[in-house]
Design a protein around this nucleic acid. Structure first.
Lengths: 115, 115
DNA sequence: GTAACCTACAACCAAATGGTTGTAGATAAC
DNA sequence: GTTATCTACAACCATTTGGTTGTAGGTTAC
């Protein structure tokens, strides 16, 4: 049995892009990049229930794109720039392949295969 | 009423990231970046039916990430670099926002420490 | 203390997703 | 011409997703 509470890299990238595939979640990312917004504050601006926004934040959190910090009774959401950069790196790998940068590619492959 | 058979930008980005949120599809992208592979050729290497791979290619195609070119009885798949770049641009917007915040912060820090 | 607010989480539901098998149409090979 | 190959697409199924409402616990305000 594979230990899958320690997700592998593929699963992590899956979650990253899945989290980014929803306009509400991308908007939450944008707004939370500015500073710490509470979940209910975020929820005010979307045409859906508080619980729905809470779920969107949870998806972003599982993807590592945001983290939450408790302050009093509210939970402040802030985006994690490292995760955004990881997503970009995944796209870079695809783009590099297209450009035929085989040299950089083999380096990256080594990385990915853990060799 | 919004004309929505002409998908707006959000919908397009949704499809882009959704297409990227699956490891099989990312692998197809990687392999199709090298050159034109037929769908059945692609399908050989995945532990699923031909129809399943066909669906994955369709998802990539709807996202604009690949295009198909008929050659004889086979359909050659090749990745569209422009779409990959569009996805990166969406991430760049998020990252820019964050970087903007950091720049402002370092500015403030500079002021405080330097003045 | 009580009321109001913020969050967590469960239960439920419709729709989308990711897979399957099966059928059918074109093209290539023999 | 027949057969094999490649693709398209429909129908079906289990699971996930994205939304809802409802309940409960913690924190702040009065």
């Amino acid at each position: 049995m594979v230990v899958d509470n320690v997700p592998n890299e593929d699963e992590h990238v899956n979650r990253l892009f899945h989290a980014l595939s929803d306009a509400t979640r991308r908007d939450i990312l944008h707004r939370s990049a500015e500073g710490g917004l509470s979940v209910s504050r975020l929820a005010e601006d979307y045409p859906m229930s508080f619980a729905a926004v809470q779920k969107h934040v949870a998806v972003l959190e599982r993807a590592g794109l945001v983290s939450k910090e408790r302050r009093g009774r509210e939970q402040l959401v802030r985006t994690e720039p490292d995760a955004v950069r990881r997503a970009r790196a995944a796209l870079d790998r695809i783009e590099d392949l297209w450009r035929g940068r085989v040299d950089r590619m083999s380096l990256i492959l080594d990385e990915e295969l853990g060799a």
